[in-house]
Design a protein around this nucleic acid. Structure first.
Lengths: 161, 161
DNA sequence: CTGAACGTTTGAAAAATTTCAAACGTTGCA
DNA sequence: TGCAACGTTTGAAATTTTTCAAACGTTCAG
């Protein structure tokens, strides 16, 4: 294996690890990294071969990744096989998936806040303050996130010419 | 159990689940949620009791959470026990931990890019383009992140009066 | 010094997740 | 039709992660 190959493999491994922080499993991370650095779409078989896994898990993983809008299926005219490539807006989507969970949490917190206001007067003040902080945090995050997406659209348009 | 209690428990469970997306284990998520909604610092024993876990895992979890700067230890003058509370800047820190991994990945990608430029001419162009996109993405993200932290500082100051 | 109250470490058990090989269903080609 | 090339499902095996109880070391009060 030459040096570039080695580095690529390193990258794929590292990516798999890092993307656990985005709610992906290691194998999901590997598939994403592999596709990210493939100049062309890869078939299921090519993926299983590269990653040295059997078809079962890879099939499931590709489906989950599609559900999350991180990769997509494309058809090649010559072949009956499914081919996969990175979703063009993968980065945004990874971000978006996270944000959804954060929002969920936020809603739950809000619900809790109104509940506790009526009942447990003693603890309510401190809790309420903390929930308010949480709420502000998520709102700001949301705002910044939207700004980010807008700017990223521009940036991307520039890159693609 | 009254309604507010029930809701709180829901919240703690949900939080534990959601925070897997931030690289935390379920129990870590629970501890964070518990402390987030406790009006006062909790001792290890109180945490183990609330979460119905034994001391071993909770002890390890609190240490890992401290390493990530999500909770901190405080001492109560009356007791020899360790007490834990949420780190005041927990939200920022959770974010920061993620970003570090992203940056790591980015560095690796960059390294790969320079390597491949010299060697494998055929694939180099497409890969290089993709890495450039990745680079731009992370740079913008980094910028937005810093803006966010600045604004959040202001916001927080306002909230605390 | 001694004992009790702690948090931490540890090795094994339990639980959850990942993985595989094989069976299966579908599709299109001969 | 029948067969071959696929992707998917499935139940069991392997691996990893989580958990516990017990042993341990430290600290402090008496």
């Amino acid at each position: 294996m030459d040096k570039a190959e080695k580095l690529k493999e390193d990258f794929i491994m590292n990516f798999g690890w890092a993307y656990k922080a985005f709610g992906l499993s290691k194998l999901m991370g590997h598939v994403v990294a592999l596709l990210l650095f493939s100049p062309k779409p890869l078939s299921l078989d090519e993926i299983t071969e590269s990653l040295k896994r059997s078809k079962g898990p890879v099939s499931q993983i590709t489906r989950r990744l599609r559900d999350k809008n991180l990769i997509r299926r494309v058809w090649q005219p010559t072949s009956r096989k499914d081919y996969y490539e990175i979703q063009p807006d993968i980065f945004e989507n990874a971000f978006r998936n996270n944000l959804e969970m954060v929002r969920n949490n936020y809603k739950l917190a809000q619900k809790f806040r109104t509940q506790i206001k009526d009942q447990n007067v003693q603890e309510a003040e401190i809790l309420s303050a903390r929930l308010e902080e949480m709420q502000s945090f998520y709102e700001l995050m949301d705002k910044k996130y939207r700004e980010f997406l807008d700017e990223w659209d521009d940036e991307r348009a520039k890159l693609l010419g």
